[in-house]
């Protein structure tokens, strides 16, 4: 296995994912297989190749820095689990 339990737990934390205890074994095994599979890219002849940034070599389009969207906060917040006075509520961060 190219990855061990500890590495996978670290990746999960970086990705903000809690893995259930019964998920860990299968995740380690399948992620290892995926990493082994993509390892074959190392053999590709890429000296002096410029990494691709865009399929059509387009550059990021810019627009004038002006307000274009109306305020739709109440409507948008209807999908939130907990809001109050237009603010999103989360567990207390600072005591």
């Amino acid at each position: 296995m190219s990855l061990d339990n500890e590495q996978v737990q670290h990746i999960a934390l970086l990705a903000r994912l809690r893995l259930a205890d019964d998920e860990l074994g299968e995740t380690v095994e399948k992620l290892s297989r995926i990493v082994d599979f993509v390892d074959q890219l190392a053999a590709a002849p890429t000296d002096d190749v410029v990494p691709m940034a865009h399929p059509l070599n387009a550059v990021q389009r810019l627009r004038p820095d002006a307000v274009t969207e109306p305020d739709d906060r109440d409507h948008l917040q209807q999908n939130a689990a907990a809001v109050s006075d237009g603010l999103y509520l989360v567990p207390k961060v600072i005591e």
Partner: peptide, 18 residues
């Protein structure tokens, strides 16, 4: 961590971790 861990299925979690 729990919202994402419980809200996403196994394949999506594998791809996020990859």
């Amino acid at each position: 961590c729990r919202s994402r861990g419980e809200g996403f299925g196994a394949e999506v979690k594998r791809r996020i971790m990859t």
